[in-house]
Every structure is written in C-alpha cells, then in structure tokens.
C-alpha cells in the first residue's frame, strides 16, 4: 500500500468511525432515556408498548 492510499484509507476510516460513533451514541442515549421515561411515566410506557405492538389487519395503527 502506497503512502497516498494509506492517507486516503485513514481519512475515510476516520470519517466513518466518527459518524458511526456519533450515531451510535445518539441511539444509545435515546434508548436509555426512553427506558427511564417508561419507568417514571406510565403514559409513556403505554405509548411505547403501543408503538411496539404489530398492527392487526382491520385495525387502525
């Protein structure tokens, strides 16, 4: 691998890793907050259960 390609690979890896870390961090934070909210607020828990339940045919979502 030439120096040129090493620099190109390092650039792409750096950008990919950073955006993946940012996205993963945001998703984990969101999941943790949703769980804590479900424990504290029964209304939020009900909404979360409803959003996870599959839609049966003939019923509105």
């Amino acid at each position: 691998m030439t120096v040129h390609w090493m620099h190109v690979t390092a650039s792409y890896a750096l950008v990919l890793a950073t955006f993946l870390a940012l996205g993963l961090g945001a998703a984990l934070r969101h999941r943790a907050a949703r769980r804590r909210l479900a424990l504290l607020d029964p209304r939020a828990q009900r909404d979360a259960v409803r959003s996870r339940a599959p839609n049966r045919p003939g019923t509105s979502p």
Binding site: A26, R29, H30, L37
Partner: peptide
C-alpha cells in the same frame, strides 16, 4: 442533521425524566 436531531430528541426525553424525578 440526523445525528443532531437524534441527540436533541434524546435530550428532550432526558429533560422530561429529570422533571418527573
């Protein structure tokens, strides 16, 4: 934009958790 929106959404939920606590 997606990352910023996801972080903001999580922060709104965290603020609600703190208020409930």
């Amino acid at each position: 934009a997606a990352v910023v929106l996801a972080r903001t959404r999580a922060a709104v939920m965290e603020r609600r958790v703190r208020a409930l606590q």
